[in-house]
């Protein structure tokens, strides 16, 4: 399995990368971590004429807090999230997610930006970023713009990125601290390590006592497009948590997703699994919220 031929460019500035992307348009692909792209090229499912390797552009790998956000450089490796004490301590939903993406070797190269920009509903970050209410920063010929994550995923493998734009940053609102109790969690059911999710659920919420003040839920691999479980959120927000409420939230999530049958399971199984995981992940997030974890 050998990739087809292509021209390779390794620009060292973002502007050069954008210029190359503008020049080659649809014939070009951005090469970041490469762990979705290169296997597809080996099977010749992807045969780009031009690869623009953005790995030599400095200052695209970072994790820091600024302006009430966790900001993550587009080229940040998944393993950096795992190793970041900031992420581990204050962003447990993101920490949960980073641990279950592919396998540890893949995570040493695969990037957060690539995971989102590929817009594969089987990828894990989309659900997580939807739950966080994150935004992404895109660089194009006219400079940078910010896109709310809710507007980012437009179709299967399609995003709001323009053809000549590169995803350079992800911005996650820092969960509130102090009197508000924020919590988050990601729960993924995979057939084995390295597999895509059969279903996975991300939640980020704020509790006041036993009442859910706010919540966002994201679902992985149970819809053609990465999705927020809005109906499920509606069942959750403003409610005092008990088994009945959780069941209603789970059922809502199961009803609003649109999985397809494959080797991972039937439609019925994936829906029911989504219900079960939704209940469990909310319990976990609430536990964290009450335990003082954000």
């Amino acid at each position: 399995m050998i990739p087809g031929s292509f021209d390779y460019h390794a620009p060292t500035t973002l502007d050069d990368a954008v210029a190359l992307l503008t020049e080659h348009g649809g014939d070009a692909k951005i090469l970041a971590g490469g762990h979705s792209l290169i296997p597809a090229m080996r099977f010749r499912l992807a045969v780009p004429d031009v690869l623009i390797d953005i790995n030599r552009i400095p200052d695209l790998e970072y994790i820091r807090e600024e302006d009430g956000h966790l900001v993550i450089g587009g080229l940040t490796r998944e393993s950096a999230l795992e190793e970041s004490s900031l992420v581990q301590e204050k962003y447990p939903l993101l920490a949960d997610t980073a641990k279950v993406i592919a396998d540890p070797l893949v995570r040493n190269l695969a990037t957060v930006g690539g995971n989102l920009a590929h817009a594969d509903p089987a990828n894990d970050h989309p659900a997580t970023m939807l739950a966080y209410g994150a935004s992404v920063v895109a660089h194009g010929p006219n400079g940078a713009r910010t896109i709310a994550i809710d507007d980012f995923f437009v179709d299967l493998f399609a995003t709001a990125l323009e053809r000549s734009e590169i995803l350079t940053e992800i911005r996650i609102p820092t969960p509130p601290t102090g009197s508000a109790n924020a919590g988050g969690a990601y729960l993924k059911m995979e057939r084995k390590v390295g597999d895509y999710a059969v279903s996975a659920v991300a939640v980020q919420l704020v509790m006041d006592g036993d009442t859910v003040v706010s919540a966002r839920l994201g679902l992985t691999n149970v819809n053609p497009v990465p999705m927020r479980a809005i109906a499920a959120e509606a069942e959750l927000i403003g409610k005092e948590l008990n088994d009945e409420v959780l069941e209603a939230v789970g059922r809502a999530a199961a009803a609003e997703c649109d999985p397809s049958a494959d080797l991972r399971g039937s439609v019925e199984y994936k829906r029911d699994l989504t219900r079960v995981l939704t209940k469990r992940v909310i319990r976990k997030a609430v536990e964290r919220a009450k335990g003082g974890d954000s």
Binding site: R191, V198, R264, G265, S266, Y269, L273
Partner: peptide
């Protein structure tokens, strides 16, 4: 004995 197979039997 995949999870789906067990799930179906349980249900």
């Amino acid at each position: 004995m995949t999870p789906q197979r067990i799930w179906a039997l349980l249900r």
